[in-house]
């Protein structure tokens, strides 16, 4: 993916949408003293180049009391890591997958309702992925901050 340079106006638009992503192009234009067309074309450029994505997020999968589980995964061999991460990324329950430098081979995150659901998920799903040697986990009890303005836009 080619990285496009962002100027002050791009950042202003991104910040404005960070507050309210349903605001119309015309309204943003009015606030910035620019035409609706300018905003529209800038925004199209930001979206097309995957700088931002505007989408609905829902309240923690509508779980009543979700915990975020951090899964620290060790692979059987270093050569298994790539396929293993690809399989993890395909799972709809998993919201974050990354290979790691330190702490574990792979970090994956998922939301669960309770410890039982986590155990079930680990045994029924994660352990069955080829190349998984061992999974350690830490269970988030209490979200203090979760800045959903960030993500990684991958095709």
């Amino acid at each position: 993916m080619t990285r496009i340079p962002l100027d002050e106006l791009d950042h202003k638009i991104i910040n404005r949408l960070g507050q309210d992503a349903r605001v119309s192009n015309r309204e943003i234009g009015r606030e910035f003293g620019l035409t609706e067309g300018t905003i529209r074309s800038r925004l199209k450029r930001l979206l097309d180049n995957k700088v931002i994505r505007v989408a609905a997020v829902t309240n923690a999968n509508r779980l009543t009391n979700p915990f975020l589980a951090y899964l620290w995964i060790e692979a059987d061999t270093a050569a298994d890591i790539q396929l293993l991460t690809e399989r993890l990324a395909e799972l709809p329950e998993i919201g974050f997958v990354s290979t790691m430098l330190g702490r574990a081979d792979v970090l994956a995150m998922t939301l669960v309702e309770d410890g039982n659901e986590l155990t079930e998920f680990l045994h029924q799903t994660i352990d069955k992925i080829p190349g998984v040697r061992r999974v350690r986990y830490s269970l988030g009890q209490n979200f203090i901050k979760h800045d959903f303005r960030y993500c990684a836009l991958i095709d």
Partner: peptide, 17 residues
Amino acid sequence: PGLSMKILKYNPEWVPL
């Protein structure tokens, strides 16, 4: 600390609101 090398998925579709 552990450093993320390659992020394959980071999609905060479900968040605590």
